[in-house]
Write a protein that binds this DNA or RNA. Structure first.
Lengths: 244, 244
DNA sequence: GCCCAATGGTCTGAGTTCATACCAATTTTA
DNA sequence: TAAAATTGGTATGAACTCAGACCATTGGGC
């Protein structure tokens, strides 16, 4: 099958304009936000009206999504002033389960993710290192890094790791970079839940994070990218075995 | 205003689940596809039923979009077997107009694009060079490159350039990379229409393309990335003056 | 020349999403 | 303690989107 270049291009470019219904997208995005620990256990989500505005969705649609999250046990809701919706989901501990239950399509998507990640996250590190960071931003990065290093339990470590990578992305100041890294971390989180975590892995990862923070804070952009590439490669090596 | 790290993160992560209505998204995507020259003047679009399936949209919605394209003069439609929709839009010649009419928000988005592009396209070049390319793929890349070099008129050159960059992206085999580059080229095309084109710019660009193709075909991944970075930087320098 | 196939054009009823009110519960504040 | 403010809960009608069927037009195959 020798597809014409024309055909290859158009096939690649004409993609679905949107995946699923609005309320499903809301459920997915909110669930991801919670699972990644951006809203940790016990924290309050913004009010329905504000969330609806942020997600650019009607309140009715958002409420359907909230009902789903409530039913799934991720959040609880109380009424009245001072009320609202609170996260009740405890971070899950990674474990080797369901790894075999992945469809071929999903596996392809996962492998694609690893390639894409190796472009975007090192690129983000490079950009963040080149951009002059303010004091507040430097502290923000250090705090996110310390949170990862401090985390003992795998579940907490996993969430802190996501937050660290997202924090780095926000330091670039580029909405497109943030969106890409968010998307990457979301799927990556899903993958990492399917492999057991060794203390050695966590320690190795923390060393790379430390080197990364050093490079970014000292403005060594090329160095930051290389460290992040190695970090991605090491994680990818673990995961490729999983989806092999 | 010292936003807490929490707030910064959530603000960055909670993004609209989807921009606009389905039919607007279709119009935008199809118009972009046509303007980028993926469907050149005189070529036939796929049938309505196939397009609807590709864009994951009902035929009714797709037809609304087609009606808009027809009214805008981008395409013409005929009925019956052998009929269909044909591109009638002549590629536009870049010219310095409307550059001042851009809103501050748009300017910010454009500057963001240049940052994002400098990550994604060099990353794509790197990945394509690392991946072993088949003979058909090598020919595809060379053909796309020759088409750019051969183009004399600025309008044709612009379209061929977009196709070249998109072709390179498809060679990575990564759907996420293709999507990112498509999105980048779409906005970039819009920007480039607002600046006049000099023959010197075109010649310089062609030399960089040639070096890029050489590096990719010989598997020199690092070299390919560096060349692409320079290519992006040079274009960005032109454009930053525009939106300054 | 006739029939079939492929295409755009039209219609309909159901499901989703939306904006906009208004109601109910609860805390803060005067 | 009463009023105000903020939150979730509910209702309604319009607009959008969908799947599916059917019609109209045209060109190709027999």
């Amino acid at each position: 099958m020798t597809a014409s270049p024309e055909h290859t291009l158009t096939e690649a470019v004409l993609r679905p304009v949107r995946g699923h219904h609005a309320f499903e997208a809301c459920v997915e995005q909110l669930a991801t936000t919670i699972r990644l620990g951006i809203y940790p256990l016990g924290s309050a989500l913004p009010s329905e009206r504000e969330l609806a505005a942020r997600l650019n969705v009607s309140r009715a649609t958002l409420r359907e999504a909230m009902a789903a999250l409530r039913q799934a046990g991720l959040v609880e809701t109380t009424r009245g002033r001072g009320g609202g919706t609170v996260v009740t989901l405890k971070p899950r501990t990674p474990s080797a389960r369901a790894a075999a239950r992945t469809s071929p399509e999903r596996r392809r998507d996962w492998l694609d993710l690893l390639d894409f990640r190796r472009i975007v996250e090192p690129g983000a590190a490079h950009l963040a290192a080149r951009a002059g960071l303010g004091d507040a931003q430097r502290r923000q990065l250090e705090a996110a890094h310390e949170a990862v290093a401090r985390a003992r339990k795998p579940a907490q470590h996993r969430q802190a790791d996501s937050r660290f990578h997202l924090t780095l992305a926000t330091l670039t100041g580029s909405p497109r970079v943030v969106e890409s890294v968010t998307s990457v971390q979301s799927t990556l989180h899903e993958m990492l839940l399917a492999i057991p975590v060794l203390d050695a892995n966590m320690a190795h990862s923390d060393r790379q994070h430390a080197a990364l923070v050093r490079a970014v804070l000292t403005g060594k952009a090329d160095r930051a990218r290389i460290v992040m590439e190695e970090h991605c490669d090491d994680t990818a090596a673990l995961l490729r075995g999983l989806v092999g």
